[in-house]
Design a protein around this nucleic acid. Structure first.
Lengths: 208, 208
DNA sequence: ATTAAGTTTAACCGGATGGTCAAAGATATA
DNA sequence: TATATCTTTGACCATCCGGTTAAACTTAAT
């Protein structure tokens, strides 16, 4: 029994590595088995097929991201504090696991259906999160704009650079060390950008 | 000769369709051949192998995006006008070809090396674009922040929602029609968000 | 020691897939 | 018409890859 648990862990770690980096189509069951140090048949003994293994890896990845996001935005803080914490947390986490986001987005691009059940299984209620943001926007900042736009703005500023990291790096010939600095700088840059961007949505602001 | 040109066009259109939607690993040479209405052997007659065909499709896609971007940001306008035009153009273009961006980002994730030569072949000088933005930030808005951050901010706000469209849609159960409205709204939303976000970077602003 | 259940392996299968080849068609030139 | 070049095809190949099978090994209970 002890050994079997061990095997399952090794499988999941290997599968995560391979799927995250190569996606569903790029991943090979043989490579996962090799990385886990086991036989390919044993891989199919634990997971009936590639799909089920992928599903498991996707669910784990998505849950990890979404739960933390929920935890932050449903906590008891001012919206701006939440945003600050979110930016810091995700720029730290994501830059260490840059492939996770791309993995999630690609997976969802191929089969968007499966997401909803993952969300429900984790007892996440995305609409609640939006409502909470909307409420705080109104009460704390007098902003009536659709919270979804705000939410997407925040995500875009944080997540996009991670997705586009290879693009940015090879486009502007930026070495790895400078890229680390760049992401570190973004914590402050994005925070101020959002804080000020939101001011444009205030009710008494002529721009809206 | 006439027919051969025709064939090449059909091949490129088919390859574009398949590669954009399924990526390198997901694409099948047979499917491309079928879509082009030709034999698989003929496909290899025009393009030695899958890699060379993919490279061509990638170069085309990237050039199309990058050239327009260059054209806008190197033209004679105020920076805010350029940003407004950029947002409108790309939200229109991208929402009709949402897969293009994801295609480019994924391709670059797999082999980032090849980008530089595409850029050079198109006579694009990314550094020039950044310098121009930096100059206009300083002269028109008294902002000294690294233009790369600003550039990435703009791209993030415009591009991320397109990448995350399936995520957003299935997460919040948004039907297609409402999603169209959402993207249409973003033209104004993002413009004001950026305009105000930038104010936070002004030299005399205590936040920076 | 026997048995039964869970775990692991080597060998194998069938279909998909990228790629090749030789020959046939088309086209232009002389 | 003969020839050379370019285009197109059907048949084929080698390999990869997801998945299966039957048997061996391990473990724990009786």
């Amino acid at each position: 029994m002890d050994n079997s648990q061990n095997t399952e862990v090794k499988i999941l770690e290997a599968a995560r590595d391979v799927f995250h980096h190569k996606g569903f189509n790029g991943a090979r069951m043989q490579e996962i088995a090799d990385l886990a140090g086991i036989n390919k048949a044993l891989l199919h003994y634990y997971y009936r097929n590639k799909e089920s293994l992928f599903e498991r890896v996707f669910n784990d990845a998505f849950s990890q991201m979404a739960c933390k996001m929920n935890e932050i935005f449903l906590s008891e803080m001012t919206l701006m504090s939440k945003i600050g914490i979110f930016i810091n947390f995700y720029l730290n986490f994501i830059s260490r696991h840059s492939y996770v986001v791309q993995f999630i987005i690609n997976a969802l691009h191929d089969k968007p259906e499966q997401l909803r059940e993952v969300i429900l299984k984790q007892n996440l209620v995305p609409e609640l999160l939006l409502k909470q943001i909307g409420k705080q926007l109104r009460e704390e900042m007098d902003i009536d704009t659709d919270p979804l736009h705000i939410y997407v703005n925040i995500l875009g500023l944080v997540v996009f650079p991670v997705l586009a990291k290879p693009l940015i790096q090879s486009m502007f010939q930026i070495p790895d060390e400078k890229m680390d600095v760049f992401f570190e700088q973004r914590k402050k840059i994005v925070t101020t950008f959002i804080a000020n961007g939101l001011k444009g949505y205030e009710k008494n602001n002529s721009l809206v």
